[in-house]
Computed example of a mutant assay.
Amino acid sequence: MNAAHSKRAPLALSDYLADLAVEALIDEADLSPKPGLVDRRGSGAHSDLHLGLMHASAMSLWPCFKAMAEAALAEGCVSQSLRDTLGRIGREGEQEMLRVTGGVNTHRGAIWALGLLCAGAALDRRELGAAPVATRAAQIALLTDSALPASAVSHGTEVCRRYGVRGAREQAQLAFPAVLQHALPQLSRSRAASTGEQNARLDALLAIMSQLADTCVLYRAGLQGLRCMQAGARAVLDAGGVASLAGRRRLRGLEHDMLRLRASPGGAADLLAAALFLDRLQHGLPAQIGSH
């Protein structure tokens, strides 16, 4: 084989962004021990989920994320046309996810968050810092999907109506404040303290949980469950984070409470995946990424 043929073919930007999104979802699922969530130990507060299903769901979404990035590359700017196209691709991705999982909603929120971030990144490959990508994603999220039925109902919309919160939609429209203001700074602090990567990611998850009005928790456990989650997460961080003995004790207490309430912070998990995606992306693109 000559040198020309031995060189690795350029990887399309859309392929790379889809790879990052799926890797972020798998890394979030594998992270352990997560209070109330599926992880390597078991199904958490869920009776219909397990780690293998989370992996299969994440892999099924690769074409969806790639198509969203390609749509943004083709459009070249934030527009109503792009918003409508992303909405259609997202609904198609959700149907494929449900087909793979046998009807179980594993990653509906992640399709929204990571899909927007893939598109935001594709719109300008020169500005891949967390804030610029999140800002472009927010500009898209602020537009209304023309094809979305006004009567569309989900657990999230029901919770938003009942408790006056806006959930995942608001997080995206505000440029993911839980990620930029809480998860990524905590991830950096914990890494700087040499706690280990897994502990740093758990601390980042807890930073999100400590302040997020998680609609998954609200749906399952109401305001009592939400306050329990937020206070418990803050207690772990205040005790020194999960790398400390005191923090681990508090984490076990938080997990006990989440399992007792049958509450799973799925919204926080989706935002942790978004944080991991942006954390990797802000280091720049590999040399083999092509121009498209």
Rank of each mutant, 00 (worst) to 15 (best):
S14C: 07
S14W: 05
S14N: 09
D15M: 08
D15Q: 13
D15S: 13
D15E: 15
Y16G: 00
Y16K: 01
Y16W: 15
Y16C: 00
L17T: 00
A18I: 06
A18H: 10
A18S: 14
A18E: 09
A18V: 03
D19M: 10
D19E: 14
D19S: 07
D19F: 11
L20A: 12
L20P: 11
L20E: 12
L20R: 15
A21K: 07
A21Q: 07
A21E: 03
A21G: 03
A21M: 10
A21Y: 09
V22L: 11
V22A: 01
V22G: 06
V22F: 09
E23D: 15
E23S: 14
E23P: 05
A24Y: 05
A24C: 09
A24Q: 05
A24S: 15
A24K: 02
A24I: 04
L25I: 03
L25M: 15
L25K: 05
L25R: 07
L25F: 04
L25E: 02
L25T: 00
I26E: 10
I26G: 00
D27K: 12
D27C: 08
D27F: 08
E28R: 06
E28F: 05
E28N: 07
E28Q: 11
E28K: 08
E28M: 10
A29G: 07
A29I: 08
A29S: 12
A29L: 10
A29R: 01
D30Q: 14
D30L: 15
D30N: 14
D30F: 15
D30K: 14
D30A: 15
D30S: 13
D30E: 15
L31Y: 07
L31I: 12
L31N: 01
S32D: 09
S32L: 13
S32E: 11
P33Y: 11
P33H: 09
P33M: 12
K34N: 01
K34F: 08
K34P: 05
K34S: 01
K34G: 05
P35Q: 03
P35A: 09
P35R: 01
P35G: 07
P35Y: 04
P35D: 08
P35V: 09
P35L: 10
G36I: 00
G36L: 06
G36W: 02
L37K: 03
L37P: 05
L37H: 02
L37A: 06
L37D: 00
V38C: 00
V38S: 05
V38D: 03
V38T: 04
D39K: 10
D39T: 11
D39A: 12
D39C: 13
D39G: 10
R40A: 09
R40D: 02
R41C: 12
R41A: 15
R41E: 13
R41V: 11
R41F: 15
G42A: 06
G42E: 03
G42N: 02
G42I: 02
G42F: 04
G42H: 06
S43H: 12
S43K: 13
S43A: 15
S43L: 09
G44V: 05
G44T: 03
G44C: 10
G44N: 05
G44D: 04
G44A: 10
G44E: 04
A45E: 02
A45L: 05
H46R: 07
H46N: 00
H46E: 00
H46T: 00
H46S: 03
S47R: 14
S47C: 08
S47T: 12
S47K: 11
S47L: 13
D48T: 00
D48F: 04
